[in-house]
Amino acid sequence: MSPEQRRAMIVRAALPLLVTQGATFTTAQVARAAGIGEATVFRAFADKDALLDACVAEALRPDTALAELASVGLDQPLANRLTAAATALRAHLERLGAVLAAAHSAGRPGRSRRNTRSHPDQDPTAARTRSDHGPGAAPSHPEHGPGEARTRPDHGPADARSGRAESTAAVRAAVAALLAPEQDRLRLPADRLAALFLAVLLPGRGPLPGDPPTPAELVDLFLHGALVTTTEEANR
């Protein structure tokens, strides 16, 4: 197993613990979940803060959602395709929300505790102990892959914006691919309709937090609109 594969394995073991326990989980628990020794965790990550950074970075990656979108069969009716897309994207956001909430509880978002220490390398054992038994930190560079946040501290807000833009573009393209077979029936280009679909599906703030619309309801609204039209009106 390469160092990168080992880091990815540790992150996969840590993510469920972060979601269920918040940042109070310990590296010993992560090691047990991964089936490795705790020392291996610290060979992969400098401290628990670095592991937290990597967990959030992994949660931010849209790879799982993109894989699910790519697996939707284009031979299905359009409504079924878009319902599957909506379900996958909502699940991704729910996972992401749980991870970010846990990371937020560990400290101020976007700032790692280790960045506030005046001499972070003078006492790595003490830093490791504090990280393992106290609150962790939100990621300073959430676009980095597992383990990269601690090795690339020079990336800042511009990289964050670039990473978000790339993820958004990838998701938009995946949804457009689901619409493309119906291009001759679409009122707008598939890419434009994909952007509108995502705007409806993933608003900045849900208007119905207590009773959110189902994916099927959103797809029905997206495809057929809010008004019932007569045949004459539809043919105008």
Rank of each mutant, 00 (worst) to 15 (best):
47 D>M: 01
49 D>V: 03
49 D>P: 01
50 A>L: 00
50 A>N: 01
52 L>N: 07
53 D>T: 00
53 D>C: 04
53 D>S: 03
54 A>L: 05
54 A>I: 03
54 A>G: 02
55 C>P: 01
56 V>M: 12
56 V>F: 05
56 V>K: 05
59 A>Y: 01
60 L>H: 15
61 R>P: 04
61 R>G: 09
61 R>H: 11
61 R>L: 11
61 R>T: 10
62 P>I: 07
62 P>C: 09
63 D>T: 13
65 A>H: 08
65 A>K: 08
65 A>S: 12
65 A>M: 10
66 L>P: 14
66 L>D: 06
67 A>T: 10
67 A>I: 05
67 A>Y: 04
67 A>L: 06
67 A>E: 09
68 E>Y: 02
68 E>I: 14
68 E>C: 12
69 L>E: 11
70 A>E: 08
70 A>D: 14
70 A>G: 00
71 S>D: 13
72 V>A: 13
72 V>L: 13
72 V>H: 15
72 V>I: 13
73 G>K: 10
74 L>R: 09
75 D>L: 14
76 Q>T: 14
76 Q>P: 09
76 Q>W: 14
77 P>W: 10
77 P>L: 15
78 L>Y: 01
78 L>N: 09
78 L>A: 02
79 A>Q: 13
79 A>N: 15
80 N>H: 11
80 N>D: 15
81 R>P: 07
81 R>E: 09
82 L>Y: 01
82 L>C: 02
82 L>G: 04
84 A>H: 15
84 A>P: 05
85 A>C: 07
87 T>V: 01
87 T>M: 04
87 T>G: 05
89 L>D: 07
89 L>R: 06
89 L>T: 05
89 L>N: 05
90 R>E: 09
90 R>L: 13
91 A>M: 01
91 A>I: 02
91 A>H: 05
91 A>P: 00
93 L>M: 14
93 L>A: 08
93 L>Q: 14
94 E>L: 02
94 E>P: 06
94 E>T: 01
95 R>K: 08
96 L>T: 14
96 L>C: 10
97 G>P: 01
98 A>M: 07
99 V>N: 09
100 L>N: 00
100 L>Y: 03
100 L>F: 03
103 A>W: 15
103 A>M: 13
103 A>P: 12
103 A>V: 07
103 A>Q: 06
103 A>L: 06
104 H>L: 08
104 H>C: 13
105 S>L: 06
105 S>C: 09
105 S>M: 10
105 S>G: 12
105 S>T: 09
106 A>C: 01
106 A>Y: 00
106 A>P: 04
106 A>K: 04
107 G>L: 04
107 G>V: 10
